[in-house]
Design a protein around this nucleic acid. Structure first.
Lengths: 227, 227
DNA sequence: TCAATAGTGTCTGTTAGACATTATGGA
DNA sequence: TCCATAATGTCTAACAGACACTATTGA
């Protein structure tokens, strides 16, 4: 081993075209939805992930952030890279695509029109192969980050009820949670703070509103788990 | 929102040079060590991550796998992408670098010579800025995967003692574990199986050897944690 | 015999999950 | 009043962490 070390520099290296592809998610009607766009080029009319190709000196992070602002407006957006992809075809024929997950809170009346539309994340139309892989990676990243990053709060408005918060967790985890345990865990982690406001929804007792209370000292987690 | 959607196709897109950079780790003397290489080009003599630049149609995954084989020999290697990086300078002047984590079991007498050397992961020499970021991402990925993927076993030979396994976890987690709890958790998860072999190491009772027993049904994990 | 390491049994405090109960509004 | 939802209290089984103890080897 160690005999044929690859050279860190190579005389004439190929140059390839790179794209930044965006998996933008938010909540709608208690469901996770994803923003897609109708392809304008070849394969006209197919649904694709919004993407941009990179200029000479721009970083994909910058391009993705700009695209997210264009698509989602001025609101808060959490942006995170989910990997580089080369397999399969890309709608803009990029040789390499960097995938991004963009998380933004539910926004009331902003159902987009024209070439953009939101689809349930659980029922996305057929996308180009490479973009399907990007979507899978983004949703995996979303779920993996759930318990060491305030992902759920990035999907909710600034104030919310605990039931809404629990629904977000259930949507992301894909299974129901126990109400009392959920609230105990929240309290123990100092993740939310109540505000002096209540909201009535149909019948039943009004729910108190809460806000995200930052992340206290982290990981007082007990024990060794092998799930 | 949704008025200025970015076009999925652009007439003349820039082409940039892409590299695959490898963070290869293994164990040595109960420490996590990382493979570095002396730069041959500009900045001659500096330590850098082994990397290769991509050809026209090759995927970085393929290139990284080939580089890992060249560097580490025929043994088992777990390879995982840890992201795409553009900030900072790259030794081969790549515009974009895809980082990879390569995990391989401790190998006895294979301390490399020449331009390659293993460094403790906790004490890596100064690398080019972009490669420092890749190293950070790789080590973060390593630790994050620890409890939902058999990372620890990829660092150990096929058979090992439970004390060795515990040491691996302690190295990766960065804190000591409770022996009895560790073993109970292992047993509960059916992660290891004993084999009919024992190993004596200095004084003391010989330790039974174990092998990785695949991953049984996953996630019987209890509860909701907010660490 | 002593020292050192492997491996196990028991106890205890914590907590996830279940269940029941109270609180508070609308129909 | 009944019903629906919010919020909380109590019990229990599971389990992490601590400790002590036995087992088995080399010095």
């Amino acid at each position: 081993m160690g005999e044929r070390a690859p050279s860190p520099r190579r005389a004439s290296a190929a140059r390839i075209q790179v794209s930044a592809d965006l998996v933008a998610v938010t909540l709608h009607a208690r469901e996770l939805v994803m923003l897609l766009q109708r392809s304008a080029g070849r394969g006209r009319g197919r649904w694709v992930l919004p993407s941009e190709t990179l200029g000479e000196r721009a970083s994909p992070d910058t391009i993705a952030a700009r695209a997210a602002r264009n698509l989602l407006g001025a609101g808060p957006v959490h942006l995170e890279q989910v990997g580089a992809f080369t397999d399969g075809r890309h709608p803009a024929d990029a040789g390499l695509s960097v995938g991004y997950l963009a998380i933004t809170p539910e926004r009331g009346a902003s159902l987009v029109g024209g070439t953009l539309a939101w689809f349930p994340a659980s029922d996305v139309p057929q996308l180009p192969i490479r973009q399907m892989a990007i979507v899978r990676a983004a949703l995996t990243a979303l779920r993996r980050r759930l318990d060491d990053s305030p992902v759920a709060f990035q999907l909710l408005p600034a104030t919310f009820t605990l039931t809404e918060l629990q629904h977000v967790y259930e949507v992301l985890l894909g299974h129901p949670l126990h109400k009392a345990s959920f609230r105990r865990a929240l309290q123990a982690a100092d993740l939310v703070a109540p505000i002096d406001e209540w909201r009535t929804e149909g019948r039943g007792r009004p729910a108190q509103l809460f806000r995200y209370a930052g992340k206290s000292g982290n990981s007082p987690r007990r024990g060794v788990r092998f799930p």
